[in-house]
């Protein structure tokens, strides 16, 4: 397996790059859209995996930052469309080069605030509190009638790039592919850095880390912020893909979906979230064609996965191949 890794990786990259051509050749135009979703969710899942898989922080509120990223995009667009300004101060925009960084910035800020509270606790309280804060934001956006409340916000067009027509689905796919690749590279760098070494240590034994003179809180908070920024980026891309944002983006079930992707792919692995996101999106779209009650088999599958395997799809494959860790 190990020796095959670079080859598999190269194959994956070629496939992803060739996907637009392939989908045309095989007359599967829907594939591009599906693949775009996979990449966007992969960014979100990778960011969750940083804190959950590497840092051991079980956040059940990650969709909050996904939603914030989406709303930054939607709100800026709505002001751009109406030629008005946010709070009468900040003019709207549809320039993706401004929107995406801003979405990351604001999501990171929210993550800093929420993380500052949540990380005062750990264990089961942390799970409950991240969930509760995400739900708080959900209700906040439901009550924000100015920005569509329950119904959300529509965007007439995607945000624009100066050198590329993002209305073309293939182009937008390539944008997402680039960003997903970049985010993967960032994650890889971070987990292998000194910071990443500390983060992994905190997952394994906080008491040990304190005993060598490393205070957990600031490191966990910074990881939480980075993760929030990743989710914000993904949310902004999703808003562009769907041309729609709604409080549903930060519903608690969405956090559960993100978690499921991380688990499906294998916790604490670099490529896991990408695999997991692909498995989830494909599974979901397949199940929905079979039955409108697709959550039922999904739930059963997840239950079976948790009870009978250890370590998600990757772990399952490892086991099938008889490799012990």
């Amino acid at each position: 397996m190990r020796a095959l890794r670079p080859a598999l990786l190269a194959l994956l990259i070629v496939l992803l790059l060739a996907l637009p051509v392939l989908s045309e050749a095989l007359r599967q135009p829907a594939a591009i859209g599906l693949a775009t979703q996979v990449l966007i969710y992969a960014i979100a899942a990778m960011s969750l995996n940083l804190i959950l898989g590497y840092g051991g922080m079980i956040s059940f509120g990650h969709a909050a930052f996904f939603g914030i990223g989406g709303y930054v995009t939607g709100i800026l667009y709505s002001h751009f469309a109406e030629h008005s300004a946010f709070l009468g101060l900040v003019p709207g925009t549809n320039d993706m080069l401004i929107v995406l960084p801003l979405a990351m910035l604001i999501s990171g800020l929210m993550a800093a605030i929420i993380g500052a509270f949540c990380l005062r606790t750990n264990g089961v309280q942390f799970i409950m509190i991240t969930l509760a804060f995400a739900q708080m934001l959900f209700f906040l956006f439901v009550s924000l009638k100015t920005y569509g409340g329950d119904d959300g916000l529509m965007m007439r067009r995607r945000d624009v790039l100066p050198f590329l027509d993002t209305r073309n689905d293939t182009n937008f796919y390539l944008v997402c592919l680039t960003l997903a690749g970049l985010w993967l590279a960032v994650t890889r760098g971070v987990v292998r850095s000194k910071f990443g070494l500390v983060l992994g240590g905190l997952r394994q034994n906080e008491q040990r880390m304190e005993a060598i003179g490393i205070a957990p809180y600031p490191y966990k908070l910074v990881a939480f912020i980075i993760a929030g920024m990743g989710a914000g980026l993904a949310g902004a891309l999703m808003a562009n893909y769907l041309r729609f944002v709604s409080p549903g983006m930060m519903n608690w079930t969405r956090s559960g979906d993100l978690m499921m992707m991380v688990i499906l792919g294998g916790v604490g692995t670099l490529m896991g979230p990408l695999l997991g996101a692909a498995a989830f999106v494909i599974l979901e779209s397949w199940l929905t064609t079979l039955t409108e009650n697709w959550q039922f088999p999904l739930g059963l599958l997840l239950l079976a996965l948790v009870l009978f395997t250890n370590g998600g799809l990757a772990g399952l494959l490892d086991r099938l191949w008889g490799r012990t860790r």
């Binding site: 971070v190 292998r192 060598i212 003179g213």
Partner: peptide, 17 residues
């Protein structure tokens, strides 16, 4: 990690440890 802790903070994100 213990050595790293003595050398100051570990907010070093991109250079491999």
């Amino acid at each position: 990690l213990a050595v790293q802790s003595q050398a100051g903070h570990s907010f070093r994100f991109f250079k491999s440890a």
